[in-house]
Design a binder for these strands. Structure first.
Lengths: 199, 199, 199, 199
DNA sequence: TATGAATGAGGGTTCATTCAT
DNA sequence: CATGAATGAACCCTCATTCAT
């Protein structure tokens, strides 16, 4: 990478970091381009050399952060001996939930913005960033020798929506119960969804 | 009701209607107070006689619309002979899903804004508006003679979050599948959640 | 006084009290008619039955409060045996300064608004309110048997302006020195002004 | 100075000039930011690049105008042969009074806003603007070989407060007498204050 | 007299975007 | 590529005043 390109990447990363910090602390609506460039230490005009607008940089961030989240969970999974697919899924979800418990602002940011649409888009856009292990995880899930799922996409969709929406409330507001209290019921439900989709 | 009070209610309703129309067509962020009062035909200052700000009127609308949604479903249920609690819940959910299929802008509005927190708040604030049957439905569910649920609040929480988040994607974007295609899996999952919470 | 008239006076006084409380705590600029009527407990329209606007009620208050200030000082003077005109003036001024030290918000209100113009107007409008002893004090000062002043109005003008402007800074901000430290120099200057105006 | 910086100074000066013109003609309360930028010929947002709010630009103006006032008086003093400190002070005051007689709107603006606090602040902030001769004048007064004053700051404070408050009334409203009629008494009082502070 | 709902002009302030440097 | 001064539309909100009741 040339010096100039490295410089550009550094500017871009700086803007991404500043935006993430502000989005998670103040919220997207209350964050202005001015805030981002000021925190980032670049000029206002520079922002527009890298991103179209606030929502463009937000989408980049969601993809990046969601990818990191799954990536870490996958890494952790690799270090275990779990081979049972049901346990693998539970492990991944549990790991992600734990990550989000430790970084509630990330949860706030992800939950408010991560929809199935973006999730799928991120799955497809695997080329852009090497951090995105999502694609691998998904295919790992689908193309197994030991288990075949009926309508695996619907299954995964229901699981992801159930987890993301219940965790949002449980982790951030302990409503209706604390996340640790919710987990047994949640994991039980997930296992059941999977079992009922197993042929 | 005096003429003056009737006039006031009319103004308030006019503002609520205008706001709902704009929120569902343009989104809340893109809707300004100016837009609302202009559509409503009242003066700008009048808005502030009835609501604190844009988010105040939004909350009133969510409560009102969610209440109407459940109210209609409850009415329809009364006309059936269903007495089994599992079938009752499925009926209510199916009815609400069908209502939302016919009014996608309402779905867009409700989904983006209805959280468990607001749901509970709405449940509690029964006195304000006679449209809110939620309280009745909830208690109908909990205090049954035939069935006792373990942790009914967690159960209801999971069902509501699962339904609202999956329907959002399925109805509006047919992602990952059309709502009608999703229903069997969704209802199956719901029934299972309930069964596993039955003592 | 009829019951109706008593009721009216009560409303008027209530408005005056509320306005004074708000003017001294928030400042005139930041006080709205709405604030006044709300604190006063009367309807908005009622305000306009008694006062033209915010500045009308302010002027009434200045006259009233300034009159009370001088009235109290005069009362205190009566209880002393001071007969020397120089000492009488110093006594009055000292007494007023002490009153203002105890009620700094009153000082803030009076100082910002009391000009020689209003002072003279208040002197003249003796009929309106029995609280206004200013007229008596002034004539007491002028028409003495023992001492005759050259240009007594200029003398009084200079004294009042000197006292009011220096006390404002000294009492409220202790700038350039505390009021007690200032007093000797101030009183010395006042005595000198008087002596040089004595024929 | 680069072209850009010159352009910026021009914008800032343009805003200051417009604000001064409006403050003196309409008063600060009745002057809006909109008025200032319109008169200045710049965009509304530009105002906030240079000043925090209306009161920020007011303070800048007071410092600037007060500095110019004293600066001109000091210049005039240099051209005389006066060396006696008492006569110097009287000369400065007389010169300033005369300037204010010729520019009553300036008097109105200065008097309403110039407090001892701002006066001292202006004295201290000498670095910002080369127009501010106040510091020199003050030290010229204090550190003399021929005369030593007891508590010179109190003395100066009393003189400034006496002059500014009496002149306000006399120049603008000829109350209680015209400024020219007041001068002898005023200067006499000032001289006496100084003498009594002379050790 | 007394009320208080309604008005709507106008206030201060923000901010995405542009473009000359 | 990078800058940051300048823009001006658009925002939210306040408030003195009116007038039908």
């Amino acid at each position: 990478m040339s010096k100039l390109e490295a410089n550009k990447k550094q500017k871009r990363d700086s803007l991404l970091d500043a935006a993430f910090s502000l989005f998670t602390s103040k919220g997207i609506n209350k964050t202005s381009i001015s805030d981002i460039v000021q925190k980032s230490g670049v000029a206002k005009g520079t922002f527009y050399l890298y991103f179209k607008d606030k929502y463009d940089i937000r989408n980049m961030l969601i993809a990046k952060k969601a990818g990191q989240l799954f990536g870490k969970a996958d890494e952790a999974l690799m270090k275990t001996n779990i081979s049972n697919i049901y346990d693998e899924v539970i492990f991944i979800i549990d790991n992600i939930i734990n990550q989000l418990c430790l970084d509630k602002s990330l949860l706030l940011f992800i939950s408010k913005n991560l929809s199935w649409g973006i999730f799928k888009t991120t799955l497809i856009n695997t080329s852009e960033d090497k951090d995105l292990y999502l694609y691998n995880i998904y295919y790992h899930l689908i193309n197994r020798e030991d288990v075949t799922f009926k309508e695996p996409e619907i299954m995964l969709f229901m699981i992801i929506e159930l987890v993301s929406s219940t965790c949002y409330s449980a982790i951030l507001y302990s409503e209706p119960v604390d996340i640790e209290e919710l987990k047994p019921y949640l994991f039980d439900t997930i296992k059941n969804i999977m079992k009922r989709h197993t042929i």
